[in-house]
Design a protein around this nucleic acid. Sequence first.
DNA 1: TCAGCTTGTTAATTTTTATTAGCAATAATT
DNA 2: AATTATTGCTAATAAAAATTAACAAGCTGA
Lengths: 347, 347
Amino acid sequence: MTSKDDKTIRVTMKDVARAAGVSQSTVSFVLSGTENMRISAETRARVLEAVEALGYRSRAAGRPTGGQGHRVIGLMFDEIATSPFASISIEGLQEEAWKQGVIVEVVMTGGNRAHETAVLNKWAADRVHGVAYASILTREITPPDALARHKAVLLNCTDSTGRVSSIVPAERRGAELATRTLIEVGHRRIAFITGEPWMDASVQRQEGYKRALSVAQIEVDPALIVEGNFLPSGGHAATVALLESAQPPNAIFCANDLMAIGCYEALKERGHRIGETIGVMGYDDQEVAQHLSPRLSTVLLPHREMGQWCARKLLDSSDMNPEAIRLEGPIMIRQSHLGVCAPETTA
Amino acid sequence: MTSKDDKTIRVTMKDVARAAGVSQSTVSFVLSGTENMRISAETRARVLEAVEALGYRSRAAGRPTGGQGHRVIGLMFDEIATSPFASISIEGLQEEAWKQGVIVEVVMTGGNRAHETAVLNKWAADRVHGVAYASILTREITPPDALARHKAVLLNCTDSTGRVSSIVPAERRGAELATRTLIEVGHRRIAFITGEPWMDASVQRQEGYKRALSVAQIEVDPALIVEGNFLPSGGHAATVALLESAQPPNAIFCANDLMAIGCYEALKERGHRIGETIGVMGYDDQEVAQHLSPRLSTVLLPHREMGQWCARKLLDSSDMNPEAIRLEGPIMIRQSHLGVCAPETTA
DNA sequence: TCAGCTTGTTAATTTTTATTAGCAATAATT
DNA sequence: AATTATTGCTAATAAAAATTAACAAGCTGA
């Protein structure tokens, strides 16, 4: 009886073609991204739009394959993971999926579009349950056209077209919270060492820093914002500059943990006792954060939870509406952020 | 051109039907589980058996014989990679495979045998070209039985039965070379901080250390071998113990880089200048090694090359004989291993 | 015994998609 | 202006899989 009901007139390529005002062949070409077929950007967009509007999924993708055999989720990374970020989100996704007997296959494409398309088409033929498309660097991307044939989510990146669900860390809120933590333990002159200025994470963390200061009615002093490069060397140089300025800060917020390593060294060289004479806050909660002395207070990126969310979103077949999530991570309170208390400086 | 050659004869419903002694329609009904069609349990079982035997997977309809289905190599990791070791070997394997248009699918099983078997069976059904089975910790393992179905290699682990080809880092030779490097720049009293004693890598690195001393006709002083734990804390404690002993060393070889971090701290606390008053050598070439000050001389693990070897071994169809490789990695010569020169002490 | 029903299957047909070849329209070249 | 190339697409076609209708075999009750 249900079998009659879910006979809901399957959406086929022909339907998409009609809606987009092109031929079925064109739809096929767009979706399988065949190189030697030239389709104008405009037509491609029209086709993808129609695919989205009609909810076309090649075959009953995202539905248990009537037969047996394990279901599969594909996880595609653009670049290879040097940082442990990737591993942790893979782990989260994988564990959550395996709870439901679903296998996760990971592919690293090196950002090569041909490679991506080949894999997405292979997965379409395999009728994977869904695909998570992940970026190492948090950023806005344009997913490959072939992704449209899958039930998909974006991990650690957002979709410029807004068609696909996505989850990214809430960098702004994380940085705001970290800065507020520094303020709450009494710091008032809080410096910020930025990352590479072209990276979204860098910009957003700086925005969070400024907003926390504004909320606390502390004036943002441009002299306290120094450009770094997300590497220890940059952290070292920026810290030296800050210490030699007219009014040195009493706390330093580094836009990532690696820069905090350099910051530590510079502070120690000048005789500072971190967590006592000056406070330091990092970002990322890389493994080193726990090994620095004193242990570095930092902001955790919720990569595991992001991976879990992807698995749940892909496996919940009732949940089809696209949404863009920004997930907050907790502040890892350790020792480095403490320091000279405000009462002493105001007294 | 190569695409013409690998005309992987696609298994179609018709083939399954022939094998099960039924019609294509029946196979279709069994697989799509259409309710209003009655198929006897017996026939259903026969069909499913044939599907399994032939490794049939439903392909998107309408693919003519051309079938340029990409070949696939499966890469299976037991544990999730917190360290970047895994990422680098994945990268090596993947790049080498993609050169030949072969896709690499990675699966992390968390060491769960049921999961491993499920994936290996799925890959068998997918007709993957080969499987690399990898371990995060270098060690001897017993591969799952289902691995026997595949052309397989072991990455970073060895096979207790010796049936499967394997590649692991040459820990003994690496440690020997590192120790020799310390000797060559003039050190004579060289201490060794061990890792967790139950780990193979720890034992073998210690053997290499001893062998280098023997070759150089330097007596192995048991007081210079201190137990660590592969963590900065252990490196710190061991270094303190060494410095407070009757005859402190003039170089310290840490069995991994993390311990070198703790070692650095302890040395700096006691006023040592690393690379001048004392030499330090690490192992692993983790990313921090470049960020420590002075930059840490250490032994590189050839993970990329190991991954590449796996791809080549699996893709070279003429090469079937099993072999067990131990691959050497170079010493990353930086500043930390230098120190009090021999000429001064001998003069 | 035999019409009528159920069950299990298949042959034939239809649907769906991939792919080859080629066509109209423009752009570049002579 | 004529010729050639290139671009952007479609028509036609090929093939796999889904579906329909039909059919054989067994079974039931008059």
